[in-house]
Simulated scan of single mutants.
Amino acid sequence: MNRIDLAGLDTGPAQTWGSVRLVPLVREEPIAGLRLREQLYDEDVTVVGLNDGTSYVSYVPHAFVATWTDDGTPAAAYGTQLRHKESENAPRRMQVQYRRRMARRVDKNRLRFLPLHLALEGYLALHFGGPEIAWAEWSQRALRSGLSPRAEEAYTGADVRDLDDALRIFEIHPRQCGVLVYVADALAGAFVVPHPADYRALHATLVRDLYGELVYQYGLMTLPARDFTARVDDTTVRSLADLRAAAERQAAEWARFHDTVMAGTLLGGDSYAFDPVYRLGRYTLWRFLPSFSLHNDSHIGEAISDDRGRIAYLKSYRLSQGQTRRGYLLTRLAAHDWNLEATAAGLGTDTGGLALRLERAGFGHLLREDVLDHYRAEARGRRSRAGDPGRMP
């Protein structure tokens, strides 16, 4: 699987509030054999122990619990928890909670996993081991520890302007099983669940999800999202049947425009590398990474598909331009066995240019300081010569 195929999900009419546009996804028939519920956490910081002995540290507000049946019969969803706020007199404190693994089986037919953090951990682990060959340019830290520690920044949905209000006031469709979130018409993320009851229970969790820097900045711009209004030629309408047919054509045209243009970068514009994480009976939990093209939007995420290839669950995160560049550089380095000269040639630049690109991307610590100093001096010399008009004859 290298594409995200939302077959079985229909695109509904969008709703806008400020700069936020929510596009509902509805199922004609829900996937009854898999259900999702939320498990709330109260801790400020969570440390997740990974299988390779490393740890993932982040703010983790909740987990999802997937419940499935082996024979495909419907499964009842567990209700979410209601918790009282702490009293105002409670002392300020930061709690740290340790969790075992990103995805952990908690019962025979129940799996607890951390939404989006499963995908982000896959991105942070991208070529995490660093150089496999001890090329002279790499620092001892890079050769010994690779990219450890590896960190990225994200924003919660509560920081994205208008998102909280939009989620609170927007209508949920009766058969809605998902949504695509846009901020200033930039696709921020996708969220799909198996059943309409799951979506109603988890709709509000979108404000606790993580969003990239670009999405946060677009929210600050407060550019109102434009409404797409339907236009019907009244000269062709002679009856209610004609009006109904015209309305259906407009809905189909909107869905086609949305799926191919607005959501094209997620649904058809990239080729994804899917990595299986866990088998849930007839279902498989995946996480995916993009090709890190510098010319397209890049999304990471996770999905659950059934044995027929249908997407039952999907959650995606749009990388910022800086995060895409970092993924691109790491991918190109790994493709050339971390050889700076060969990688630079593949990128159409020289070794010094690549070294300085690595420094600007936040990977300068991977190179020896004297090597970086040499390339910095070369760059200063080129700039100085470019600004020298030369001597008069």
Results as ranks from 00 to 15, higher is better:
His258Tyr: 14
Leu267Trp: 06
Arg325Glu: 14
Trp254Pro: 02
Gly322Glu: 15
Arg279Pro: 01
His258Lys: 00
Ala252Gln: 14
Tyr283Pro: 03
Asp242Ser: 05
Met262Pro: 00
Tyr278Ile: 00
Asp275Ser: 05
Ser316Lys: 00
Val261Ala: 08
Pro276Cys: 01
Asp306Leu: 13
Gln250Pro: 01
Pro290Met: 13
Arg279Val: 12
Ala245Gln: 13
Ile311Ala: 13
Ser293Ile: 09
Gly281Asn: 06
Leu285Phe: 00
Gly268Ala: 14
Asp259Thr: 09
Phe257Asp: 01
Ser271Trp: 10
Leu340Arg: 02
Ile300Thr: 12
Leu340Asn: 00
Trp286Asn: 07
Asp297Leu: 15
Tyr283Thr: 01
Leu285Asp: 00
Gly346Phe: 07
Asp275Thr: 13
Ala342Tyr: 07
Gln250Asn: 10
Ala245Gly: 04
Ala241Pro: 06
Glu341Thr: 09
Asp306Val: 12
Gly353His: 13
Gln250Thr: 10
Arg249Leu: 09
Gly301His: 07
Ala247Trp: 09
Gln321Ala: 15
Phe292Arg: 08
His336Asn: 15
Gly309Thr: 09
Asp242Glu: 04
Trp338Cys: 14
Gly309Arg: 13
Glu341Lys: 08
Ala273Asn: 11
Asp350Asn: 15
Pro290Asn: 13
Ala342Phe: 07
His258Leu: 00
Tyr272Glu: 07
Ala247Lys: 13
Ala312Asn: 02
Leu285Ser: 01
Phe288Thr: 10
Leu358Thr: 01
Arg318Ser: 14
Ile304Gln: 02
Ala335Met: 12
Gly301Tyr: 05
Ala303Ile: 11
Gln323Gly: 15
Gly352Arg: 05
His299Gly: 01
Ala345His: 11
Gly348Tyr: 07
Thr265Asn: 13
Ala342His: 12
Asp307Met: 04
Phe274Ser: 00
